[in-house]
């Protein structure tokens, strides 16, 4: 099967892609050439990069987002830098990442962390600042101290927005793994069929990661059923 408009070696049809995907996964037919049977290894490597970068990125993003949402001094100190830096395409950092971190996993994790950082920090700030002032007043009336206000009112209030940020971060993390070895490598080798099979793989892995987050969200944020759009 081919698309008919392009030669099959340039743009393989769905049947060919599926066959290659299965071979990359299972290594039975050898259709994927040197990539045959390498899916598990590459997926594990990607999973490690994505989750390591994602966790570093959202960890820092949520922490700084909380600081900036709560304290004017933190917002004043960091806002301008963040607003400037977040416009730079993450791929543009690649040369610097290699200079800082050398080759292999570390630069990739750095890039993914950077990409994951921005949605989390922005949404956390938004969530903290959106805390209902009347609810805060109610907390003060009950005699809550600063720590209790943060733990019992501000954090739960901000959680839906933080979660939205984390979901976006997860998506970006998977997008950035495209900088990973296999995809570019196959691209250079003109194996479009392998490239598309890998795109599919990333799509599926990203989707499953998002489902995982939604499961977590559901158990943590059941109360938002009535106040926000579920997902």
């Amino acid at each position: 099967m081919s698309s008919g408009y392009f030669p099959p070696n340039l743009l393989p049809g769905p049947g060919r892609v599926l066959a290659v995907f299965l071979d990359v996964a299972l290594g039975r037919t050898g259709e994927a050439g040197i990539y045959s049977g390498t899916l598990a290894t590459h997926t594990l490597a990607s999973l490690w990069r994505v989750y390591a970068g994602f966790l570093v990125g959202i960890g820092l993003g949520i922490f700084l987002g909380l600081l900036m949402g709560l304290f004017l001094w933190a917002e004043r100190a960091l806002n301008l830098s963040i607003q400037v830096l977040r416009n730079i395409p993450i791929t543009a950092w690649r040369p610097l990442a290699i200079i800082f971190f050398g080759l292999a996993d570390r630069p990739a994790i750095f890039l993914i962390a950077l990409g994951a950082f921005f949605p989390s920090v922005m949404n956390t700030i938004h969530g903290v600042k959106g805390t209902d002032r009347i609810v805060v007043k109610a907390g003060l009336m009950m005699g809550m101290n600063q720590e209790q206000l943060l733990r019992l009112i501000v954090l739960p209030s901000a959680l839906p927005a933080i979660f939205t940020g984390v979901r976006l971060s997860m998506g970006i993390s998977w997008m950035l793994v495209i900088l990973g070895y296999l995809l570019l490598d196959a691209n250079y080798a003109f194996r479009t069929d392998v490239v598309i099979a890998m795109m599919l793989n990333i799509g599926i892995a990203g989707y499953l990661s998002d489902r995982l987050l939604l499961l977590l969200r559901h158990s943590l944020l059941g109360w938002t059923r009535g106040v926000s759009i579920g997902g």
């Binding site: 209902d132 109610a138 009336m141 109360w223």
Partner: peptide, 16 residues
């Protein structure tokens, strides 16, 4: 503010 003075606001202001 303190618990010796209970306040009811125009909006309920409950913890959702």
């Amino acid at each position: 503010p303190g618990p010796d003075r209970g306040v009811v606001f125009q909006e309920p202001g409950l913890l959702p």
